[in-house]
């Protein structure tokens, strides 16, 4: 249902020693939207992702998913609630095959994890799911390659394939276009938009390529020095002077840079 808040953080704070990486962040991600987190390097975007995914514990503040407080849940429990994540650094199982990487993603949320007496190859459901995703993403012919032998341009797609195999309600995409060849990016945009349409998924993404973020997102949150600098529609953000200021010295974004 539109307007429902799927993910909310209240006063979320993370200190690393004396450094405050995330500073009292209140974030509201509405169900069914594509929400982009942007900000200069070191703004705390990845730390915020780690807090939401559960691999870091916040110093203060709470995280709510569908109104439920998930601040103290370990990451694997969050995955079962429907929070899926693709990493910025390629983060797969390198010596397992591409197919097995995706199959493991599908298996994780099923109920057969402790069927240690059944060959995994006989659990057709997860294999079918994995093949379907690989076909959709155009990687079926690479299925037998060990993940580490994948051509570099394909590794990013494997990350996304693993995410798709889990069909999470909330997808956390950490710089999905990083390291991707320029000619691949339109395909990535199409895929993200299609994922979003299908099943009304909610996507929270970090993107360094601001034009890409602006094109995809319905809502944009700008982080700066760990704080929320601005929040709004892409048009509002583009007009925001504080945001322009923050990006001075990096790379100014103008609506015409598409």
């Amino acid at each position: 249902m539109p307007g429902e808040v799927l993910l909310e953080t209240r006063g979320l704070t993370k200190d690393f020693g004396g450094l405050r990486a995330v500073d009292r962040v209140d974030l509201r991600v509405e169900a069914g939207t594509i929400h982009a987190l942007i900000g200069p390097n070191g703004a705390g975007k990845s730390t915020l992702f780690n807090l939401i995914g559960g691999s870091l514990r916040p110093t203060a503040g709470r995280i709510f998913y569908r109104g439920r407080d998930i601040t103290d849940l370990p990451p694997h429990r969050r995955a079962h609630l429907g929070i899926g994540r693709a990493y910025q650094l390629i983060h797969v199982f390198p010596s397992l095959s591409v197919l097995e990487n995706v199959r493991l993603a599908a298996q994780a949320l099923g109920s057969d994890n402790f069927c240690f007496w059944v060959p995994a190859a006989r659990l057709q459901r997860y294999l079918d799911q994995a093949w379907a995703v690989l076909h959709e993403i155009g990687m079926a012919e690479l299925a037998d390659l060990p993940a580490r032998a994948l051509p570099h341009g394909h590794r990013r797609w494997l990350e996304i394939a693993m995410l798709l195999a889990q069909e999470p309600q909330l997808m956390l995409l950490d710089e999905p276009a990083a390291g991707m060849a320029l000619d691949q990016i339109p395909r990535l945009i199409r895929l993200i938009e299609e994922i979003h349409r299908r099943g009304g998924r909610t996507i929270l993404l970090i993107e360094h390529k601001i034009d890409l973020a602006m094109r995809l997102a319905h809502r944009v949150t700008v982080l700066h020095h760990g704080r929320v600098l601005a929040e709004g529609t892409p048009e509002e953000i583009a007009r925001n002077e504080a945001v322009q200021q923050a990006y001075l010295g990096e790379r100014a974004w103008t609506p015409s840079s598409n």
């Binding site: 694997h76 190859a121 659990l123 693993m162």
Partner: peptide
């Protein structure tokens, strides 16, 4: 070769990722 054994391999290869997948 069982689903459990495959998760063992996944944990060996990349624990953080396996946990993020829900294991």
């Amino acid at each position: 070769n069982s689903p459990t054994g495959r998760v063992w391999a996944a944990l060996r290869e990349n624990e953080e990722r396996a946990v993020a997948l829900g294991y």
